[in-house]
Each structure stands twice: as structure tokens, then as C-alpha cells.
Amino acid sequence: MNNIPMKLKVCGMKYVENIKQVAILKPDYLGFIFYEKSKRNFEGIIPDIDKRIKRVGVFVNEYIEIVVSLAEEYKLSLLQFHGEESTDYIEEIRKYLPNTEIIKVFSVKDTFDFTMLEPYEGKVNYFLFDTKGKEKGGNGVSFDWKVLANYNSKTPYFLSGGIGLEELDAIKAFIKLPQAKQCVALDVNSRFEIQPGEKSIKKLKEFIKQIKKEL
């Protein structure tokens, strides 16, 4: 069994009333995508929600000045970088936002070269593994989690990519494996959507209920 408390991130939030409804379920993180090419691009206001829910801003190869501006405007607790951001880029961000945690995303298909993580060790707080697809996230497809058996980093990671109610049995099996030891959060998005950016409260409630039985 995973001895690290598994948290939940609901990403791709877009609509005020839906944000309020999801916040009532008390996920650990809410993700807001700041990427114009995304169907879930966020441009609205974040309503008053429980302060314990951390706000995550998702960016793709964005200008540092814009990232800093949006992080300050929306009081983001974490920044998730989903593009080809270099370690120099990360270090520059740190100068402006030293207290903001950073997640670096890596896309996985059938295999993954874990040496790609080495330059980021000690520079980011978390890695996030998502499924390689046409979109920068939100593809609704899972990758083979067995790939993570080769994960030997001390950096904790988020597990993403096509996680839905249908994956509950697979998740329950996964969290008992050695490679889940460093997994600190499940990241859900498109498989819980009514439309891009709007989440099904019914599905999320059921997912949370089932996951809590295991963790």
C-alpha cells in the first residue's frame, strides 16, 4: 500500500458555478489552464473557495512575465509546466515566485526515458506523468502505468492521463505497487467532463467515495 497520502487534483476548471460545486467536494487541488489553444483555457474569475484547496496554474511555453502576472493575480499555489520549459526557465521563475511550488510535466506513451528527469531533480517540487497525445493534456487516454516501475527518483509525482471511473480497479491495484510509493496525487480532467471545462459532480463524488475506501 502506498504510504504517502494520495491527493486529488481536478484540472481544467473553467466555469464559476462548476468551480464552486467541485470545491464543495474538497479536492486537494484545482487546476486552471492558461493556454489559448486549449478548449479549457481559463479567462474568468476564481470564486471564493476553501483556502485549503490549492490553485494550480497550467502553462505551455508561456512568457515568464505572463506566468508571474497570472500567478499573482489568481493567487496560484503551484505552477504546472506542460511544454518544453528548460531548467533555466524554471530557475528564472523561481527568482520571481520563490514560494510557489512547481510541477514539470512529462508525456509518456509505451516507454519513457527516465534520464530526461535528471536535469530537473532538485529544481521542481513534483513531476507529472501524462499520456502523450494530440493535445497538451486532456486527451482522455491512459498510458501503461507499468512504465513507472522504472521510476527511481526521490521527487514525488502526480499521475495523470485518462483517469476516470473505469480505472478504479486499476488505480486500486496501482497504489499497492512499489512504483506508487512516490505518487502523491491523481490528476483527473476530461473523463469527468460534461463539456470541456465543466465537470460532472455525480461522477466526481463517486470517484472520491471509492478512492477514500482505499486510501
Results as ranks from 00 to 15, higher is better:
residue 120 Y to H: 11
residue 76 L to P: 05
residue 151 Y to G: 08
residue 168 L to K: 11
residue 40 R to M: 00
residue 98 P to M: 01
residue 92 E to R: 11
residue 111 T to V: 09
residue 69 S to F: 13
residue 147 V to N: 04
residue 120 Y to R: 06
residue 52 R to I: 07
residue 2 N to K: 14
residue 80 Q to N: 08
residue 105 V to G: 10
residue 18 N to R: 03
residue 41 N to A: 02
residue 27 P to E: 05
residue 82 H to G: 08
residue 30 L to R: 01
residue 186 L to W: 11
residue 125 N to K: 00
residue 148 L to E: 03
residue 114 F to V: 07
residue 56 V to Q: 09
residue 167 E to V: 07
residue 155 T to R: 05
residue 50 D to I: 06
residue 184 V to H: 11
residue 135 E to S: 10
residue 3 N to S: 15
residue 40 R to F: 02
residue 100 T to R: 01
residue 151 Y to E: 07
residue 213 K to N: 02
residue 60 V to E: 00
residue 122 G to D: 05
residue 129 F to S: 10
residue 197 G to V: 01
residue 65 E to K: 12
residue 164 G to W: 02
residue 139 N to K: 04
residue 147 V to L: 01
residue 192 F to H: 03
residue 85 E to Y: 06
residue 198 E to S: 14
residue 170 A to C: 10
residue 71 A to F: 02
residue 56 V to I: 12
residue 180 A to P: 04
residue 117 L to T: 05
residue 144 D to N: 15
residue 189 N to H: 09
residue 120 Y to M: 06
residue 78 L to R: 04
residue 45 I to N: 12
residue 35 Y to T: 00
residue 170 A to V: 12
residue 184 V to R: 04
residue 48 D to T: 08
residue 88 D to C: 13
residue 23 A to Y: 05
residue 194 I to K: 14
residue 4 I to F: 14
residue 63 Y to K: 13
residue 102 I to A: 05
residue 200 S to D: 09
residue 101 E to R: 10
residue 183 C to S: 07
residue 108 V to M: 03
residue 39 K to H: 12
residue 30 L to T: 04
residue 17 E to G: 08
residue 127 F to T: 03
residue 96 Y to L: 03
residue 123 K to V: 04
residue 59 F to K: 00
residue 61 N to D: 15
residue 4 I to Q: 12
residue 118 E to Q: 14
residue 104 K to R: 15
residue 196 P to I: 00
residue 5 P to G: 02
residue 51 K to H: 06
residue 5 P to V: 01
residue 92 E to M: 10
residue 114 F to C: 07
residue 45 I to C: 13
residue 60 V to K: 03
residue 171 I to N: 08
residue 7 K to F: 07
residue 51 K to M: 11
residue 33 I to L: 05
residue 141 V to D: 10
residue 118 E to L: 14
residue 5 P to T: 02
residue 206 E to R: 15
residue 56 V to N: 07
residue 55 R to I: 15
residue 43 E to A: 10
residue 132 K to M: 12
residue 76 L to C: 02
residue 13 M to Q: 13
residue 125 N to G: 07
residue 184 V to P: 09
residue 15 Y to C: 04
residue 181 K to Y: 13
residue 192 F to P: 06
residue 123 K to P: 10
residue 62 E to P: 04
residue 26 K to R: 14
residue 146 K to P: 03
residue 127 F to A: 03
residue 187 D to W: 04
residue 9 K to P: 08
residue 15 Y to L: 06
